[in-house]
Each structure stands twice: as C-alpha cells, then as structure tokens.
C-alpha cells in the first residue's frame, strides 16, 4: 500500500500515480459482464465494423472506472473518492493500453472536509488525451 497522502502535504500541480490497463478482448468482456453493458461494438468485430467503426472500441464507462481506480488507489485507506467526471472525446481501440493520469488543481475546505480537486484524463499509447475530466476527493 502506498503512503497515505494528506491534505496538508499535497499541493497544486502535483501529479498522482498513473494507472495503466490493457484493454484486450478479455478485459472488454469482463467489463461487459461487470457493468451490464453488452453493446456489441465492444466485443463483436463484424458488428463494430458494420456501424462504421474500424474495430471494437473500449467502453467509455470502463475508462471512467479506471480513472476512479486511479483516484481510489491514490487517496489511500483514509481518503474518499467523491466525484469522478469525464467526457469521451476520442475512441480507444481494443488491445491498446489505457493510461490514467491526474494532476491536482485546487485544495479547499468545505463543511469541515478537506477536498482536493484534480484534472484527470486517460491517454492512449501515442499520448493523445481521449478522456478528459475532473474529480474531487477528500483527504485526511
């Protein structure tokens, strides 16, 4: 387990540890079952191509969940993930790595809670940001 980050110690501009997930066909089928999203563009190549896509694409909500995982793993046992928001601007193709990243943009105290805002996103292996977003976590 990584060290517990604290509100006092973190600062604006800090980058949090990245998380990388390879999105092969097994991963996308695991996600289909885990999320209940069985839309065929994610696991049926013929179906995906018939809708005009070059191949199967990674589920948007899986990218959101990987961003959530990155935040959960960073905030430690005493932190809480409160808000995770992202937009699916670019498609991520099957079999590629999804790289989740985040940078602290603000620190604030609200109703006695120590809140940290972040800019978060996922990148594809070429470094293109396909899923930009924002998040809020509570730290001890």
């Amino acid at each position: 387990m990584a060290l517990q980050p604290t509100f006092e110690a973190v600062k604006e501009g800090d980058q949090i540890p990245t998380v990388t997930l390879n999105c092969d066909s097994q991963r996308l089928v695991l996600w289909a079952a885990g999320s209940g999203d069985y839309y065929q563009i994610h696991y049926d190549k013929d179906f995906a191509q018939a809708t005009g896509l070059p191949d199967r694409i990674t589920h948007g909500a899986l990218k959101h969940a990987v961003l959530g995982r990155m935040l959960h793993e960073w905030v430690g046992e005493k932190g809480r993930v409160q808000r995770v928001a992202c937009q699916y601007r670019g498609m991520d193709m099957i079999d590629k790595d999804l790289i989740a990243k985040g940078i602290i943009t603000a620190k604030r105290t609200e109703n006695g809670q120590n809140l940290v805002d972040l800019e978060i996103w996922t990148e594809d292996p070429s470094g293109q940001k396909t899923t930009p977003g924002t998040a809020t976590v509570a730290l001890p």
Partner: peptide, 15 residues
C-alpha cells in the same frame, strides 16, 4: 440508430 457514450459524472454523497 447508432449510439455512443458521451461522458460520465458520478457524484457520491455516501458509501
């Protein structure tokens, strides 16, 4: 007919 997911924002108020 075709559908894509545009974005997701979960805001939690409790575990």
């Amino acid at each position: 007919k075709r559908v894509l997911n545009g974005g997701t924002d979960y805001e939690y108020f409790a575990n």
